[in-house]
Amino acid sequence: MSGFSDPYNLMVCGVGGQGNILISRMIGRILVDKGFRVTIGETFGAAQRGGSVFSSMRISRKRYYGPLVPKGKASLVLSLEPLETLRLLAEYGNQDVLTITNTHPIQPVGVLARRLDYPEQDRLNAAIMELSRRAWFVDVTEMALSLGAPIVANIILLGCLLGAGVLPIEPGDVEKEMRETFPPNKLELNIKALKAGIEAV
C-alpha cells in the first residue's frame, strides 16, 4: 500500500451495461467498513445505452470529497474495455496512474457503421502502457465466457484489482460483501470468478 495518495481517486470505466456500478459500490462499501471516507459518482440513463460510462470514487482518511475527480488526478483506472482506459487516461491520467484493463474490445457503433476504425490492439496497449506508471492487461471477457457466464466479467476484473495488491482489500472482504448482498444461488459462481481474477494477475 505504498503511495496511497489522499484523496485516492479510483475510476471504474467501461461501456454501458458492463457492470462498472456494481463493482464500484462493492469496493466503496468495503473501504467504508475499513474506516475510509468514500464518495462515488456514477453515470446513469442515456449514457448507459452503448456509451462510455465510468464511476469515480473519492477515497480519503481526512474528509468527504465531491464525486467528480479533477482532470489529471486519477490514481487508479480499473477498466472493462481498452478504448475506455485510453479515454479516461486522456482526461484524468498522470505519470503516477496505475491501470488494470480488460483487453477485450467492444466495437463502438461508429465502427459497425464503417465510419470509424477500432485501433489496433498492440498500439492501444502500448499507448495505455506509455500513459500508466504500471499497467495490467487481462482478457476478463474471455475468462467469463469460459466460466459460461459473461455477466461475471466485472467480478473477475475486481479479482484482478485484488491480485495487483494496490488497494487495502483482501479476498475475504469481497467474499463477505458478496455473502451480504448477492443472491445465495449466485454466490458460488461469483466467488469462482473473483478467484480466477486474483490468479490472473
Binding site: R49, G50, G72, E84, A90, G110, D117, A127
Partner: peptide, 23 residues
C-alpha cells in the same frame, strides 16, 4: 494538473488512436 510532457503524450495518443463511442 499534470506534467506538460504527460499531456503531450496523452494528446498524441488521442489524436492517433481514440475514437468516439456513440449511443
Amino acid at each position: 494538473p499534470r506534467a506538460a510532457h504527460y499531456s503531450q503524450a496523452a494528446d498524441r495518443c488521442v489524436q492517433e488512436l481514440l475514437i468516439s463511442r456513440g449511443l
